[in-house]
Design a protein around this nucleic acid. Structure first.
Length: 407
DNA sequence: AGTCCACAGGAAGGGCAGGCGA
DNA sequence: TCGCCTGCCCTTCCTGTGGACT
């Protein structure tokens, strides 16, 4: 692109009034002063946690609800204001918020302990020490600190699926081992059935109090969006139809308010790019397409080389056969591609795991089927449209020889 | 009813890298 | 420098499985 046209873009950007007043209000970590349709939940949570203000230990709480139902937002709001109240009244209260799904920050018992210790101001190495040492350090640090600790473990299911429930048992035991410290656990999960898989002792201890966040319906999402639109956009920047469309689409997707906010944000960005003055329904449709595409491309880009080769094998076979492909065929082609590309081919066992990971990430759609005499396998489906395929080709072409990419 | 296929997927363990303390 | 500890990726070995075929 010529430099003059670049400067034209930037000039027109600075010289025109944009759609946004405060774009941050549409991001997922924005904390609004008012959370519509969750007033009652916030009040209940506040009553549950208030005992810390009298130096008493509240019950452990287990909260569940699908993505974008306001669980984290509500607990953050309550704990923030609880922290303030505790400070005013001179109570020794510490809030620890840990998102267990944040990349690889807390996917092992060791890393969780490192994270907790660092929040208590104790820096320990990321690896190298025996776990017992960390437990000991934690107990020492807590004994030194004392008081009430509220530990919010967001997406706790992701953590426990990986490292088992021992860690929760150990944390709940701290209150007994360190007499002047009380720890309250607030577990947040997207999966309602997750508590059933826990050890009965831990289950009863974790879910002393339970709270369910139901999905929002389209009207509730509309209210949420409208409130945010007032903060985020200049007057008359968003068409009412666009808000309704975002709400309807998000309501279809498990009543996820976060999805609605993303849709509106991207729609507005697309609208700005086209130099339109008002975000209309048309942009919401394009935003929906763009969000799905971007998500998939990001996931695929982040995969290791071997996984990418598995994806290429699946795409090539899918193009050839025009129907669901199966593990054995994918593996055969993958093996050939790996050799041709100078890579050591992984075993079928490992590739089977990679395929199942890709299924979990939503890149492919795989299900185990039995073909009777002809064995059991995974039937793998890939739903791709033309524009996505061309973007994928470009994404992968840099890494592999072009003739592999024949889908 | 028994056999057989083509895997799925669990369990155990090897090898490597990063990091610590002696 | 060495021994030890951890996480991670991977292999090897194994058992389990659903339904077509005999």
């Amino acid at each position: 692109m010529a430099q003059s046209s670049l400067s034209e873009i930037f000039e027109s950007y600075t010289n025109t009034v944009g759609l946004f007043k405060d774009k941050g209000a549409l991001s997922s970590d924005f904390s609004p002063s008012n959370i519509p349709h969750r007033e009652k939940k916030i009040e209940e949570l506040a009553y549950m946690l208030a005992p810390v203000l009298r130096n008493e230990k509240p019950s452990n709480i287990f909260i569940y609800g699908k993505t974008g139902t306001g669980k984290s937002l509500c607990i953050k709001k309550v704990t923030d204001s609880l922290e303030e109240a505790a400070e005013k009244s001179g109570r020794n209260v510490k809030i620890m918020y840990i998102n267990c799904k944040m990349g690889k920050v807390v996917d092992t018992q060791y890393r969780l302990l490192v994270k907790i210790l660092s929040m208590l101001g104790e820096n320990v190495p990321f690896t190298g020490l025996p776990t017992n040492t960390l437990h000991k350090k934690l107990n020492e640090k807590l004994a030194e600190r004392g008081g009430n600790i509220i530990m919010v473990l967001d997406e706790i299911d992701a953590l426990l699926e990986k490292i088992g429930d021992d860690i929760l048992y150990n944390i709940t035991r701290i209150s007994q081992d360190v007499p002047n410290t009380q720890i309250t656990i607030v577990g947040i999960s997207n999966k309602p059935t997750f508590v059933d898989s826990l050890d009965p002792r831990i289950r009863s201890s974790l879910s002393e109090e339970e709270m369910v966040f139901p999905p929002y319906n389209a009207n509730e999402i509309k209210d949420i969006l409208q409130a945010r639109v007032e903060t985020a956009f200049n007057e008359n920047a968003v068409d009412y139809g666009a808000i309704t469309k975002c709400s309807a689409l998000a309501a279809q997707e498990n009543g996820d308010a976060r999805r609605a906010l993303d849709l509106l944000r991207v729609a507005a960005e697309l609208c700005e790019r086209e130099k339109c003055k008002k975000v209309s329904e048309r942009f919401v449709n394009s935003a929906q397409e763009k969000l799905d595409k971007d998500r998939l491309i990001e996931i695929i880009k982040a995969q290791p080389k071997q996984s990418k080769l598995v994806i290429i094998s699946m795409l090539n076979l899918y193009k050839l056969e025009k129907k669901a492909v199966q593990t054995g065929d994918v593996y055969n082609l993958y093996e050939k591609l790996a050799h041709a590309n100078g890579l050591k081919a992984l075993t079928q066992r490992r590739v089977s795991d990679l395929i199942s990971e890709l299924d979990m990430l939503g890149v492919i759609n795989a299900s185990v089927v039995s073909k009777g005499r002809y064995g059991r396998t995974r039937k793998i489906n890939i739903q791709l449209n033309k524009s996505l395929v061309s973007v994928l080709k470009n994404t992968l072409a840099g890494e592999f020889t072009e003739d592999f990419i024949n889908f």
